[in-house]
Design a binder for these strands. Structure first.
Lengths: 151, 151
DNA sequence: TATTGTTATACTCTATAACTATA
DNA sequence: TATAGTTATAGAGTATAACAATA
């Protein structure tokens, strides 16, 4: 870091520290919720993405930023556990449609509630108006447009 | 979620969504920086923690929330790559002192700069006063006290 | 030829259990 | 007995490369 950095010397650096810490704290909570449901964080994300979508292997891999071969393994293990299923795509003989099973749906809804409950202690450090302001700032930073993981 | 949730129905839920999205966005950047340096995110964290500390296997594992056996492997591989070294603790025959090598130090500093540079596009969506406010809110949420990863 | 998906292979990350050496 | 650390083992996550089937 040199002082030539544009407007990020004093507040930018601190912000980045805070963002990284908040990210680790949040991921730790998500990890714990996933682990309590006997899932990895990646599996939790797979369920969250499939919450209201049916996708092919490649599309799902793209959502997660993973290789399709990695995706095959993840889906395989989740399917073996009865959380989702693969079905042939009627309009494309090569493609599959991956979707949550009813058991997977139930689990996903339960995990959502747990995520909210587990993150509440953290957000409760702020007053309601502060929470509101934080939400607005984060949404603004993230681009405002709608592209969240779970729906 | 029911409407009986205390003061978290309208803004709390949205905030949690925003926090999770911000966490994933931040982790994606950290992951990419790590991968560019041929490291896993965990290895990046190890380097960050050792940036200004010398620690034993157990202490390091506690920082990361991992088992000490996991730590042994991580340290072993990092040592093999010349990023850190283990030395006998003079005052305790069982313990080791893990510290960055000069190569590890250089790499860590470089990665720090890259993390800042890589997160800047995201934070630049906000104006300087907004960044300042976001930082304050995040720090407040995280507890205010000083317990960041890298120093 | 390009795309969709899987399989084979290899490596890292991770935990549990058993172990050695020191305290 | 308790603590610090390693090793053995097993399984999940990940990428690369090679492959089959379909478009």
């Amino acid at each position: 870091m040199t002082s030539s950095d544009r407007s990020s010397a004093s507040d930018g650096e601190g912000l980045i520290d805070a963002l990284v810490q908040a990210a680790f704290a949040t991921m730790a909570v998500l990890n714990k919720v996933a682990a309590d449901g006997d899932l990895s964080l990646t599996q939790l994300r797979v369920l969250a993405i499939l919450r209201d979508r049916r996708l092919g292997t490649t599309a799902l891999a793209d959502y997660l930023g993973l290789e399709k071969s990695t995706m095959s393994g993840l889906v395989e293990r989740a399917e073996k556990r009865g959380l989702l299923q693969r079905a042939q795509d009627a309009s494309d003989g090569r493609a599959v449609e991956i979707s949550l099973s009813s058991r997977g749906k139930k689990l996903t809804e339960r995990l959502y509630v747990q995520v909210e409950g587990s993150l509440n202690p953290m957000t409760s450090a702020l007053s309601p108006p502060e929470r509101q302001r934080l939400r607005v700032l984060l949404e603004r930073m993230l681009g405002g447009s709608d592209r969240r993981e779970g729906g």
